Amino acid sequence: TFIQARPLDYLMVLAIKAPTFLASVVAQYYALALYGIAIPFVKLMLFLPLVFLAAALPISVAHLGTSQAAWLLFFSTNATPAKIVAYSLAAQLTFMLCNALIGLVFLPRASRELTALRAEDSSAPTTA
């Protein structure tokens, strides 16, 4: 897929992802201020993708530990380790709750679609 993609394809993906990432950085910037943590915006823009990447590694349960380690690695000079860990745990809980809420909102639709697929599979003729 990456080999077949044209530069225009990469630009389209970047155009779709950039506003979301920028909104995430802005939200993190202001949320960090609520915890009394001052991290320069540019530093946050540079290292936050690495924190997200570390959090996405499938090496821990519920992404606990890897995300906190990344926060400490990149931002421990900006606040005490206790504040950094507290913020990263609170942020992770917030995002998990938001994802659960989004999932609950779309659960009825997903259930209808899965039920329709199951009905189609059972009504399809079988060949022996």
Rank of each mutant, 00 (worst) to 15 (best):
K17V: 12
L73R: 11
A110C: 05
A18K: 09
T80I: 07
A86S: 13
A86L: 10
T77K: 13
N99E: 07
P49W: 06
S123H: 04
A82H: 12
A110E: 01
V85K: 05
K17S: 13
L22R: 09
L48V: 03
L14T: 08
A31F: 10
P81S: 14
F47K: 08
I59F: 04
F74A: 01
G36N: 05
M12E: 12
S76A: 13
A124T: 14
I102D: 06
A69D: 09
A56S: 15
P125N: 10
R109Y: 04
S122R: 15
A79F: 04
M12H: 08
Q68W: 07
D9H: 03
T66K: 06
P7N: 07
Q4A: 15
Y10M: 11
A124E: 14
Y29R: 00
V105K: 02
P19Q: 08
L107E: 03
G36A: 07
I39C: 00
L89T: 03
F47M: 09
L89Y: 02
P108A: 02
R6I: 12
A54W: 00
K17W: 12
T66F: 06
A56E: 13
G36R: 05
K17T: 13
F41C: 06
Y10N: 07
V51T: 00
I39Q: 01
L11K: 03
D9T: 02
S67E: 09
V42I: 10
T20F: 12
K43V: 12
M96I: 05
I59H: 02
S76Y: 12
A62I: 11
L57R: 06
Y35G: 02
D9S: 03
A55Y: 08
S123G: 02
L101H: 08
L46C: 06
L8P: 01
L89K: 02
G65I: 04
F41P: 03
L104C: 10
T1E: 14
Q68M: 05
I37D: 03
R118W: 14
H63V: 02
A55N: 12
A55H: 08
F2H: 13
P81A: 13
P19A: 07
A116R: 07
L46M: 10
A31D: 11
L44M: 11
A5H: 14
L53D: 11
